[in-house]
Computed example of a mutant assay.
Amino acid sequence: MSTMTTRRGDRIVYDDLGPEGAPTVLFITGAGPTRADDPITLATAEALAARGIRSFFADRLGRGESTSAGDISLDAQLSAIAELAAVAQAPVILVGHSSGCAIGMLAAPRVPTIAGIVLWEAPLGLFPEGAPAWWSAVRSSIDDGDLEEAVAGYMVGMPPEWLEELKSSPAYPQLVLGWVPDGEALALVEQRGNTDVLAGVTAPVLALTGTETYPGMQETADGIAATAALGSAEQLRGSEHSWDPDAMAERLAQLVHEAL
């Protein structure tokens, strides 16, 4: 376990796997997971380390062992990612999962050593009334102090068993406060559009979906690939919104070698 303190005073706890100075993969999880309950990302990081590639797997701001010195805002989250990337002192590939994709897209311009962006099943363009309207309703519930309604609103369209599982968490319903950067990022990326968000990104952008995925995910991946300067979309072994660790590690290792 490693720790980093941001300029704002946030304490970021992360696993640092692989050789120091090597090209680094920085994982950006979506809403919810912590290092302690995300064995798939950990297994992927371990498989990359075995291939001589360094990985940073952090608890997101205000989650798990990472603490926030102030509001858990999108800007604070983007700054924390950029400062963690700088610790690598090497080329960095950002890997976003779910809503972490939108955060990764927005964080990329802040990482001078960016060598690539990998986006796993970005939930963009999938909200019936659009992400800005969806997030506005969730944000309103948070501002009103109705955190249970905020969690339910955030989970709209997702499998109902996911919400029931969340209700058993000791952090429920306050956990929604850690999802603020995710909601803000999804709304902002949809508002600005993929083309504008990725305009300054000259590194490869790889949009991935599982071989078993949810409706609309493949179309979103294709759309991201079409708007990036060096964009591509592929399917990779995976299901239930998660990737297969060995398959992902192999594809990331290939991307590292191609980028460098």
Score class of each variant (00 low, 15 high):
2 S>H: 10
5 T>V: 14
5 T>H: 13
6 T>F: 05
6 T>R: 04
6 T>E: 05
9 G>E: 05
9 G>L: 07
12 I>M: 11
12 I>W: 07
17 L>C: 04
19 P>W: 12
20 E>K: 11
21 G>A: 13
24 T>G: 08
24 T>Q: 11
25 V>M: 06
27 F>R: 04
30 G>W: 01
30 G>T: 06
32 G>P: 01
33 P>K: 00
35 R>E: 02
39 P>G: 12
41 T>D: 13
41 T>M: 12
43 A>Q: 13
45 A>R: 02
46 E>V: 10
47 A>C: 14
51 R>M: 11
51 R>H: 03
53 I>K: 03
55 S>F: 05
58 A>Y: 01
58 A>W: 01
60 R>G: 08
62 G>P: 01
63 R>M: 09
64 G>P: 08
65 E>A: 14
65 E>K: 10
67 T>L: 04
68 S>R: 07
69 A>C: 11
70 G>I: 05
71 D>C: 03
71 D>Y: 07
74 L>N: 02
83 E>S: 03
90 A>W: 03
90 A>C: 12
97 H>P: 01
99 S>Q: 01
101 C>I: 11
103 I>A: 03
103 I>H: 00
105 M>Q: 11
105 M>T: 08
108 A>H: 02
109 P>R: 08
114 I>E: 03
115 A>T: 01
125 G>N: 10
130 G>Q: 12
130 G>I: 04
138 V>C: 12
139 R>M: 10
140 S>E: 15
141 S>K: 15
142 I>P: 00
144 D>L: 09
147 L>H: 04
147 L>F: 06
149 E>K: 13
149 E>W: 00
151 V>Y: 00
156 V>G: 11
157 G>I: 09
157 G>C: 07
158 M>F: 12
158 M>D: 04
162 W>L: 15
162 W>C: 00
163 L>F: 07
163 L>H: 04
166 L>T: 01
166 L>R: 11
167 K>H: 04
167 K>D: 09
168 S>G: 09
169 S>A: 14
171 A>L: 13
176 V>M: 06
177 L>N: 02
182 D>K: 03
192 R>S: 10
193 G>V: 06
195 T>R: 15
195 T>M: 10
199 A>V: 04
199 A>P: 01
202 T>A: 14
202 T>G: 10
203 A>W: 02
204 P>F: 05
205 V>R: 04
208 L>R: 06
210 G>R: 01
214 Y>C: 01
214 Y>L: 14
216 G>V: 03
217 M>L: 12
218 Q>M: 13
219 E>F: 05
222 D>N: 14
223 G>A: 10
224 I>T: 03
224 I>L: 15
228 A>P: 00
231 G>D: 05
232 S>T: 14
238 G>A: 06
238 G>Y: 09
241 H>W: 07
241 H>E: 08
242 S>G: 10
242 S>F: 14
244 D>R: 06
244 D>T: 11
244 D>K: 11
246 D>R: 14
247 A>H: 09
250 E>H: 09
252 L>N: 03
253 A>R: 09
253 A>S: 15
254 Q>T: 14
255 L>P: 00
258 E>Y: 07
